Each structure stands twice: as structure tokens, then as C-alpha cells.
Computed example of a mutant assay.
Amino acid sequence: MLQCRTPVQRAQALMCDISETGCRIELFDGYVSKGSTIFFEIDHRNELAGQIVWVRGSEAGVKFMHKLSAVVRAALEL
């Protein structure tokens, strides 16, 4: 489970179906809107940004804004 935030709200989410270009998230609290930017706190030094491309209830699809770095890939066990 990762901490994540949109520009104005913090939430907890489970990252699922992770690929090089995006993932599906399950939100445990909070909400996101299609088109909004989301930031995942990988560790205290690394963050991963993406854009919400779809929302269905407490699940959402995220397209990553940048290619995953080696540090982020290792942290996500890819």
C-alpha cells in the first residue's frame, strides 16, 4: 500500500496491474477525478507521477507521466 496525493488531497491506495506505462489503483479513502494528476510516494526520496485516465467506484487507471526509473522499478519489485 502506498501513500498518494492529488494536488489538494492525501489518500491511501493499493497499486495493482503495474506496467511500464501505468497501473490500476484501489483507493481506500479519498477520491480522484479523471484527468487529475496523482503522485505516489515510493519512499522519502522518490515520487511517481501519473494522470488518472478512468475511474470506476473506488478504482482508477493511472498513466505514468515518465518512464519508471530503476529505483522505482526496484521499489515496486518489477
Rank of each mutant, 00 (worst) to 15 (best):
E20S: 13
D43T: 08
G22L: 04
D43C: 10
I38T: 04
Y31F: 13
E77Y: 09
A60Y: 00
H44V: 11
Y31Q: 14
D29A: 09
I25Q: 04
I52L: 08
L27F: 00
L48S: 04
V53Y: 06
L14C: 09
M15D: 03
R73I: 08
R56S: 07
Q9P: 00
H66A: 15
V55F: 02
D43V: 07
R73K: 15
A49S: 15
Q9M: 15
G30I: 03
T21N: 11
S19A: 06
R5K: 14
Q51G: 06
K63V: 09
A75P: 02
V53A: 07
F28W: 08
L27S: 00
S69C: 10
H44K: 15
V32W: 00
R56D: 07
S19I: 05
K34P: 02
G35T: 08
D29G: 09
E20A: 15
A49I: 11
E26W: 02
F28M: 09
S19G: 09
A13V: 11
V55A: 02
F64R: 01
I52H: 05
T37W: 02
H44I: 10
V53Q: 12
V8P: 05
V55E: 01
G57R: 07
W54L: 06
Q3K: 15
G61V: 04
H44G: 08
G30T: 05
V55Y: 01
M65R: 12
R10P: 04
A70W: 05
V53I: 13
I52E: 01
I42N: 06
I42A: 05
E41I: 06
N46Y: 14
E59A: 06
G50P: 00
T21C: 01
S33E: 13
S58K: 08
T37D: 14
H44M: 12
A75G: 08
Q51A: 08
A11P: 00
F64A: 02
E20N: 12
C23L: 00
I42E: 01
M65I: 11
Y31T: 13
V72E: 04
R5N: 11
M1A: 11
A75H: 06
I25Y: 01
V32D: 01
Q3T: 12
M15P: 01
V62K: 01
H66T: 15
E59W: 02
P7T: 10
S58Q: 10
E41D: 12
V62G: 01
R45C: 07
G22C: 09
T37H: 10
R45F: 11
A74S: 14
T37Y: 03
G61H: 01
A74E: 15
R45Y: 14
V55T: 04
I38A: 03
I25T: 04
K67M: 13
P7M: 12
G57C: 08
S69P: 05
G61L: 04
S19R: 05
L76C: 04
R45S: 14
R5Q: 14
S69G: 08
